[in-house]
Structure formats: C-alpha cells, structure tokens
Design a protein around this nucleic acid. Sequence first.
DNA 1: TTGAAAGCGCTAACAT
DNA 2: ATGTTAGCGCTTTCAA
Lengths: 336, 336
Amino acid sequence: MTVHDVAARSGVSIATVSRALREPHRVSEDTRDRVLAAVRDLGYRPNRAASSLRRGRTGVIALVVPDIVNPYFSSLTKGAQGLSRERGYGLVVVDTTELAEVEAEEIAALRSQIDGIILASSRLPDDRLAEIMSTTTCVLINRDLSELGVTAPTVTIDERSGARTAVGHLYELGHRRIAYVGGPERSWSQGRRAHGTREAAAELDGVTLIDVGSFAPDVDGGRAAAAAARDSGATAVIAYNDLVALGLLARWSETGIRVPGDVSLMGFDNTFVAELSSPRLTSVGADLTECGELAVELLLERIDHHEPAEAGLHRVVTPRLAVRDSTAPPADADRG
Amino acid sequence: MTVHDVAARSGVSIATVSRALREPHRVSEDTRDRVLAAVRDLGYRPNRAASSLRRGRTGVIALVVPDIVNPYFSSLTKGAQGLSRERGYGLVVVDTTELAEVEAEEIAALRSQIDGIILASSRLPDDRLAEIMSTTTCVLINRDLSELGVTAPTVTIDERSGARTAVGHLYELGHRRIAYVGGPERSWSQGRRAHGTREAAAELDGVTLIDVGSFAPDVDGGRAAAAAARDSGATAVIAYNDLVALGLLARWSETGIRVPGDVSLMGFDNTFVAELSSPRLTSVGADLTECGELAVELLLERIDHHEPAEAGLHRVVTPRLAVRDSTAPPADADRG
DNA sequence: TTGAAAGCGCTAACAT
DNA sequence: ATGTTAGCGCTTTCAA
C-alpha cells in the first residue's frame, strides 16, 4: 500500500494524495473526499520511515526513566504515553536501571533517531546534562539547570510547597514536634524536601523539626529508620516518600507502635502504594500523570513550533495533600 | 553525518561503509579498521529512517499493556525494555488504559510501522485476536489461542502449577480449610487460578477449598472480600493477586484479625507490593521481568530468522513460591 | 574485495 | 488546485 495505490484509485497524482493527508485545506473538497475515501478503502497508512527520511522528523519521542517499576515513574510514563499517543507521536521508553552510564549511552544512541527526549530524574551530573541539553531537543523533569545558566524546558515539582503543606497539615492537627526521615543525600528531591520542611517548621510557632538522617528511598530504608524516628520523641513523622513511610509503618506495627494512635505518619509523592496499607497513608504529592503530560506538551511545543529553548518553557506543579488515615491529632492534644 | 562523510574520511565508497557496518566479514580487515575508526571519530550513527525504508524493517518493536502503573505490567515492561535495548531494538510502549478499543486501534496504527508487537494480557476477544495474529508478527503474553487452532508464539505462566504450589504450601503448614478470593470472572488468569486451586485441593487429603467469589483485582476488591473470606471459616486464604491480599490484610487489621495468627494469607504474582506490608506477604508468582525478556526473545527470533509462526514457539514460565511472614501453621495445628 | 547506481515511499519545490 | 520531479540516507544487486 503506497501513495501510488491511493493515487491510482482516486485518479489523482501522488502529490495530491500526500497533500490531502498533510494539508487538507490545500486541496479541493471534492478531491479530498475522493482521496480520503480511497485511503479508507485501501486501509492505507503512510510509511513512517519514508516520511521521516524526507521530512527529517521521526514522529517519535523518548522518555528516559531510572526505573519503570517505581510507581513514581510508571505514573509519569502513563501520562506521557497517553498524550503522545493522542498527538500522534510514538513514545519509546527507556529504563536506565538507575545507571548514569546507561542513560548517557542511550541518549547518545537515540539523539539522531527521534524528535526529542524527556529526561525524568536524570542521574547524570549537571555538566554532562548541560552538554546534552545544548545539542538535543529535550525536556527535563525534576531537574533545574537554571543556576548553571542553562535554560532548558523543565517540569518541576514545587517540593518546598509540598513540604510546607505536609508540615502545615501536621501543625493544624496540633503536632509541635515533627521528625523528618530523609532520602538519599544526593537526591534532588531530598534536598528540596528537607529544606522545605525545615523552613516551614521555622516559620511556625513552637514547632521543632528533627532530622532523623538519610535512608534508602524504599521500604527497607523506612524499616531501618523506624527506631530512630520513634526515639526522636516526635508525635508525627514525615517520610521522604511513600515507600519509606510504608517501611516505618511496617516496622512500627511489628514493635507495637500504632499509627496514628501513637504517632502520625505522612508520606511524599502520593503514589498508589499510599492506598495499600492500613491505615492508609496521608501523603502529599503532585499528579505524576499530569507531569508526564506536561513534559510531552512542552517537548512537542518545542518540536512543532520550532521554538527555541527559551525561558518560559517551565511548568511547576504544586503537590496536593491527600488526607487519609495515618494522621490525627497527637495523643496529648486535648491535654496541652 | 552520513555514509558519505564516513566514506570520504576513510577513502572508500559509501557501499563499503555500509558493508563494514552490516557485514564486517565481507570487507578486508584493513578497510574495516579504517572505516570503523572514521565512524568512531565522526560519531556517525546510521540514520534509522533511511535504513528502515530501504530494508523494510524498522528496528522497533511495540509492547502493548493494559496499565503500565500496575506493577505486574511495569515489571514485564522492564524486562522487555532491557532485552530489546540489548539487542539493538527500540521499544515503543503502549498503555491501553484497559480499553479493548484503544488496544485494537493502536495495533492497527502500529502494524505497518514496526517489526513486531508483544501483546500482554490482551483485552481483545479471541476472534479479534486470532485475526490480528494472522496478519501481524506478534507474541502473546498470558493468552493461548491454541484451542482455537491459532498457533502463535506465546509466553504463558503456568498458573495451575502456581496454584498447586500455593495450596501445597498451606497444606504442609497444616491448613485443611482454605479459601480462595477470586478476581474478575472474565480474566484469563482468574480461570486458571481458580481451577488450579480447586484441583490441587481435590488431590490433597482432607482439604476443603471454599470459593469466596469474584472481586475487583485491586485493594478495594480485597477489602470488599474481607468479611466473606473470614466468615468462610478457613484457616488460610489465597487471594487472586497481591493487591487483593493487601486489601484483605488492611481490612482485617482494622477489624482485629491478625495475620498469620488468626488466619494465614497468600498472594499471587509476587510483585514488589508483597514486600510492603506487615506482615510481608507470602506470594507465588513468575519472574515477570523474565517473561518480558522471553517475549522479546520469541519475537526477535521470529523477526530475525524469518521463522514462521510455528508451534514450538512457546515458553511456559513456572511461578515460584516466596515465603514471607503472612503464612504460618493454623492456630490449632498442635492440637489437631 | 570494492564501487557504481538504482530505488525504498514519501514530501516539498517548482511548474502548470 | 494539481502534477512533475528531485531527492532524504541507506542497502543491495550487479559489475568490475
């Protein structure tokens, strides 16, 4: 099935077939109808390879994530996939298994074969990333190179706002002694979240924030932090993410500590795992599906309208609070 | 960067450049070295669109899944992605959001633009699927059309074996009254798992299996089934999948029923969520990453060696038991 | 072992 | 409004 078949069937030239498909308005209504009818009848689909070769565009974009099994990234992927499909673009997903080398290699391999790349939570150092940004059409998620003078389209989550929301929620419940169980020190989100909680606590009357330290960003990290978090004497604990919170919850439940009876607990990210436990986790997080969509939108804007990597191509997503069952007023609330 | 640049730099014709890359053995060692050096120096990468157009192959395969956020499918995706990358193929991921229509439409759109498709847990009816199989290079995961006379490459999980393993594990612990909380009636896995548990129970001395009914395959389904499962009087419960098990666990914990103290609990699939709870879930499941890899392997075999859709292109993966903390001997074990 | 040349299917100038 | 035509970059006969 080629343009020739369609042309023959509808009695026009192949150029008209191509036009009827790509620029319908540049063709008379009559011919257009005939061509489109032939297209339908024959089940014709333009050959993407030929089109790509000629146009210099592939109609494919890539999404690079550290770990697709992580619900954070699979949600992002879902959003990106949905919108790119809607816009007629193919989405190639690359899982780097958290390895910066794999990421760099894949980006290099993909660069010339696709129209653009979305890099989610890149594990690459700033300088390598800046270099890539200058030679590739791409959008960053969870990364901001503006301090480096590199102005790239980005989707970021306002982690500080999220941290404030988390602390504020606990404050309003009556908590004054709050612990924060941190994630990996080098993590971008961890920096923002730790800073945000500290800052929010400092601005609130009589709130003490205890930093429990850095832990692995998974259930085991949470389990490892459980004792220290409890010993901090806090009436409420904020975990680096939902998985860490679940780890805390699991370990505490094994040692007889009740949530929210003895201590309130909050997660970050509000992924679906927050709904899995008992009590269900109160969590604050951005709509990751939306983040994925925004990234695609930004990228396609840049691709379709040939927009340069100007400033203004930023989207900041504000995390929202999902109150569930793991937070409640502190036990001594009515006494205090 | 084109073949011409490389040709010029290494003093050969473009044909030789192409050969040095695609059929190294058909080029003298000397020239080959020179060409490859030029390739490296220039950072040349063959243009995929041009190559595709000429060869009639795209070097891209697609993976179609109902829901990428479901850990079952994200694990599958991870495996498929890893192997296809290793083999030099791009992987386009499509999330159908559980909609058969979207699935059908996407398959039609992709068909001519890629080398093959992997359909995971297709939501399409048998006849539609059979039709697709006959006109497309593809591999099925979790589906078997052989009863329909359609012989397609498939990766299936031996659900019956898994069910036997689950029942056997509980039997050995001393359980004799076992309940099964089923998933959606129309689900392929549900049929096999329900049947397998029933069968295994029938073969074991004095085991009663109670079918609690069909529920949604998620946490809410588990919560909804909690009372009925408990009222069945079983000393152990097998859930349709890990999420359902987690729902049972959560609801029970809220109503004062202890696991495994009062009742043992097993999940299916052994996804990462089984590690999230307290107690951690004993679960039986196949290595989904491996299933994804197998599917890619099967598909590439078919693509690369032009193998017809012969029988023999089947892989059956046997689920393995992961014993964690949610199963233990029944409370009256030493009394009985 | 290497080179010359045809063309994969499409799009976009250019011509009518 | 429509047709003619020249390639996009590569692979692959065919010839040398």
